[in-house]
Computed example of a mutant assay.
Amino acid sequence: MRDILVHLSRFTTWTGGAEYAARIAAALDASLTGAYVYPSPLYMMPPYGSPALLSVMIENAQAMEHGALQARQAFADWARERGVQRTAWQVAEGYLPDTLGQICNWHDLLVVERDDEMLWGTPQTLATLLLQVGTPCLVVPSVVAPGTGPDCVALAWNGAPEAVRAIHAAIPLLRLARRVVLLCGDRRDVYTGAGYKPPFSIAEHLERHGIGIERQNLDTADERAGHALLDAVAACGADLLVMGAYGRSRFSEWAFGGATRHVLAHAQVPVLMRH
């Protein structure tokens, strides 16, 4: 992870998500890009709006863009105080998931803040983003515990391809941790059209990367999986959860499985997800 992107919903102050992104970037000696995206006036224009109203909206968007562009140095100074040596600043206009998806093509990790009073207030909006960007995504609560990096990381494991991709993406962060706890749920049967023996071993895979794990089993009904997962995260003292974003339908922009929706709505620790 050499290039980390953090979405910023404001360009005057930076809160929990930005703080956590800076913490991770400093720990990994990575570059940190701050991205401020504002909506196009054409998207916000009422169907029967007047030309005068459109003119005002365009002027407001231009003023917003100008103010955001002026924040480049302030962001760089703020990040440097937190140990980040290399920064970039990106201002863009457009529909947020699509625009961030384009910017993500140049980055290894996207960090977004989950705040009930802001854009990512619902699991559905977060799910839209997770499905539209190919980059691993770290969803951070607005308030996170202080620290220099992940100390204990919990891995949600059920054998699904999404879980494999999420854990593989998290390896740089796992190397920073003192403890890595594998939370093993029921293995998900996935038809791939091919069989192989012996079965893939996540423990051996991580060991090849120099990462040892503790293993805990999760025995719970599907409808309680999200609750059980967060209870296990709290019980082992994890300060980061890694899990695949499990979808019931790949053609839906929000219909994730119940465990994913529950975690997106209620996790009190940062969650790294990948679909």
Score class of each variant (00 low, 15 high):
Thr122Gly: 09
Pro123Val: 07
Pro123Thr: 04
Pro123Ala: 11
Gln124Asn: 13
Gln124Asp: 14
Thr125Arg: 15
Thr125Asp: 12
Thr125Tyr: 13
Leu126Val: 10
Ala127His: 04
Thr128Trp: 08
Leu129Glu: 06
Leu130Gln: 09
Leu131Asn: 15
Leu131Phe: 15
Leu131Trp: 10
Gly134Phe: 06
Thr135Lys: 14
Thr135Cys: 15
Pro136Leu: 07
Pro136Ala: 08
Pro136Asp: 12
Pro136Val: 06
Cys137Arg: 02
Cys137Lys: 07
Cys137Met: 10
Leu138Gln: 10
Leu138Met: 12
Val139Gln: 05
Val139His: 04
Pro141Gln: 04
Val143Gly: 05
Val144Pro: 05
Val144Ile: 13
Ala145Ile: 06
Ala145Glu: 14
Pro146Gly: 08
Gly147His: 05
Gly149Leu: 04
Gly149Asn: 04
Gly149Trp: 00
Gly149Arg: 07
Gly149Lys: 07
Asp151Arg: 15
Asp151His: 13
Asp151Asn: 10
Cys152Thr: 15
Cys152Ala: 11
Ala154Met: 03
Ala154His: 05
Ala154Tyr: 01
Ala154Gln: 00
Leu155Thr: 00
Ala156Val: 02
Ala156Phe: 01
Trp157Cys: 02
Asn158Lys: 02
Asn158Arg: 02
Gly159Phe: 01
Ala160Pro: 04
Ala160Tyr: 00
Pro161Leu: 11
Ala163Ser: 08
Val164Gly: 08
Val164Tyr: 08
Arg165Glu: 09
Ala166Asp: 00
Ile167Phe: 04
His168Gln: 12
Ala169Val: 02
Ala170Met: 03
Ala170Thr: 02
Pro172Ala: 03
Pro172Asp: 01
Leu174Glu: 00
Arg175Gly: 11
Leu176Gly: 05
Leu176Ala: 02
Leu176Ser: 03
Ala177Ile: 00
Arg178Ile: 00
Arg179Thr: 07
Val180Asn: 05
Asp186Ile: 01
Asp186Gln: 09
Arg188Met: 11
Asp189Tyr: 09
Asp189Ile: 10
Val190Arg: 05
Tyr191Glu: 14
Thr192Met: 08
Thr192Cys: 06
Thr192Ser: 15
Ala194Ser: 14
Lys197Glu: 15
Pro198Asp: 04
Pro198Cys: 11
Pro199Tyr: 01
Pro199Val: 05
Phe200Asn: 06
Ile202Gly: 11
Glu204Asn: 15
Glu204Phe: 08
His205Gln: 08
His205Ser: 10
Leu206His: 13
Leu206Tyr: 08
His209Arg: 12
His209Gly: 12
Gly210Tyr: 07
Ile211Asn: 06
Ile211His: 08
Gly212Gln: 13
Gly212Glu: 13
Gly212Arg: 14
Glu214Cys: 12
Glu214Ile: 08
Arg215Tyr: 08
Gln216Asn: 13
Gln216Trp: 05
Asn217Glu: 14
Asp219His: 14
Thr220Gln: 07
Ala221Pro: 06
Ala221Asn: 10
Ala221Gly: 12
Asp222Ala: 15
Glu223Trp: 07
Glu223Ile: 09
Glu223Tyr: 11
Arg224Ala: 14
Arg224Ser: 13
Ala225Asn: 01
Gly226Arg: 01
Gly226Val: 02
His227Pro: 02
His227Met: 10
Ala228His: 05
Leu229Met: 07
Leu229Asn: 03
Leu229Thr: 03
Asp231Val: 05
Asp231Gly: 06
